[in-house]
Amino acid sequence: MGAQMAKRITLGTIAARLALVCVVIFAVFPVIWTLLNSFKEVVDIVTPTPKLFFSPTLENFQYVFERPSVRLGLTNSGIVVFSSVVIGALFGIPAAYALAHMKSRMGEEIKFFVLSLRFLPPVAVAIPLMSIYLDLGLYDTRLSLTLTYVLLTLSTIIWLSIPAFERVPTNIEEAARLDGYGPYAVFFLVALPVAGPSLFGAIIFSFILVWNEFLIALMLTTSEAKTLPIVASEFTLLGRNVPWGILNASVIVLSIPPLIFLGVLSGFLNRMFKK
């Protein structure tokens, strides 16, 4: 009886595992194939029978990194994303702290407004912004793109940080007030470190959001301020023969920073949570 039960559970577990493996393969296989293709020569990519074993080449990556447009895109993406995330965090985290403590109708309204910033389709925002920036002479500049991205990072960081601050027990902050600390000291010495791990999550999320952002960048830049996703997408327009290898390599280049960020920081986060 007991053995039978165990057996049934094992069968169930195996079925679940199999289903899980199928889903994972379904999700991860295209990524792995892209990774493989980025090291292949075009001949190996376009063969009718897919090749798992081939002599790898770095030509695609070499080509990608030698393109001035890619270097410019990388610089632009770096500067724009870094600035917008830093500005978003600098203003968003204190705003979220204030909102988490604002237990009134007004607070609810502000929270909803912040969320509503994320409701509009990006195009609806991008077209008016485009004409504003054209008038101001800021079109196709890193500054205008950064300003626009701050809207995204700010609302995302505020929205994700509010629950992080709400989870900080009120009594801890009260204890600090009784220990003689003013509101700023309570924020920096108590609330911020306690909510820290969750705030990192909010920052990473907003980083990935703007790093991958395509549509707004497409509309607000033409040459000088183009970000990496725009540059990468342009490889498909390099003529009739789609340069699959180069395209794949550029996709990999594009994916690496968020992966590193997530990988390094998730380890850090795990440690934070364990302690």
């Binding site: 027990p169 009594n171 009260e174 204890a175």
Partner: peptide, 8 residues
């Protein structure tokens, strides 16, 4: 406090 309220 009831829930100790130590700085975690």
């Amino acid at each position: 406090f009831q829930n100790y309220a130590l700085y975690p």
